[in-house]
Amino acid sequence: MQKYSRELSVAIVLALLLLVMAVAAPAFYDPQPLLSRLAREAPTLIVACGVALVMVAREIDISIGSIFALCGVCAGLLAGSGWPLIAVFGAVVVLGAVLGAMNGALVAGLRLPSIVVTLATMVILREGLRWKQQGAFINLPDAWQWFGLSQRGGQWALIAGALIILAVLAWASRHLAGGRFLYAVGSNAEAARLAGLRPRWITLAVFVFMGALAGLAALLNVVQSPQVDPKSGTGLELKAIAAAVVGGVAVSGGRGNLWGVFVGVLLLACINPALTYLHVEAYWEKAIQGAIILLAVIFDGLRNRRATN
């Protein structure tokens, strides 16, 4: 009970919000917009899972928004030059992994703090992309949207894909050696080393994995519309990190559960649309979003305090 208190308090806040919506604005649950909304959040979920694993290993990655944008633009350019879907898929995931490896090499190889390294790569990649692309949209071939499926089929495929990744990662992080290594390294790198693990290789691996996930997420975002916006992914890092932390992942490493992250992503994804449905003026959006994030963690903080007293 105590162990999952953060996850629980966030789930309660989410349930309350959903309940309010069911009573006050049932249109919130109309199937078409709901499906669209969930499909839109599928890439965010994947990125949030990735960053949660990075945080479990006691690192952080704030360059994911930039990697996401770069991979999206590359996917668009490759698709435009006639590459088949599967080849672009491979290329984008590899590109993401390579960029992640760059972060990982600097963090694990030179032992630099990850927040600084990824802060630097975030601006370098974003400004470089702006310089090169100058904000111009990239048109995709028609057959690309929804992987060539119908719209509804494509949206279900996206959501299913993201959920499968979530489930596999959630299971793997608990039951596979590789996943448990992350927790070991994140809890105490020195102890992990003495236990025979190689913390630096694990750190490198988690960054590579994060990059690959960001690339995959970019692809899942690109197929949802016929044009690629090179600015997409701006602020994605904050959204993903907020979802992970709200969902109970500890910034200090070694703690966190991907199902909690799932709840966090859902909560953050619901706030904005909910305000639209409740006809709240947009001026309040940011303030309410901030207040709900604070509320979700304050709940948890108060409970912990009571527990320790």
């Binding site: 604005a25 249109a27 919130f28 109309d30 078409q32 917009p33 669209s36 909304r37 839109r40 949209f137 975002n221 949802q224 519309s225 044009q227 916006d229 600015k231 997409s232 701006t234 602020g235 904005n272 649309p273 639209t276 449905y277 006809h279 003026e281 947009a282 959006e285």
Partner: peptide
């Protein structure tokens, strides 16, 4: 004029806002 929404100059966010607007204001 029923609502005014910001999209942070992002196409993806504009798409999400428009989706919600259409269903929130049938």
């Amino acid at each position: 004029l029923v609502d005014t929404k910001p999209c942070d100059d992002l196409k993806d966010k504009a798409q999400a806002e428009a989706t919600n607007l259409m269903s929130a204001y049938p």
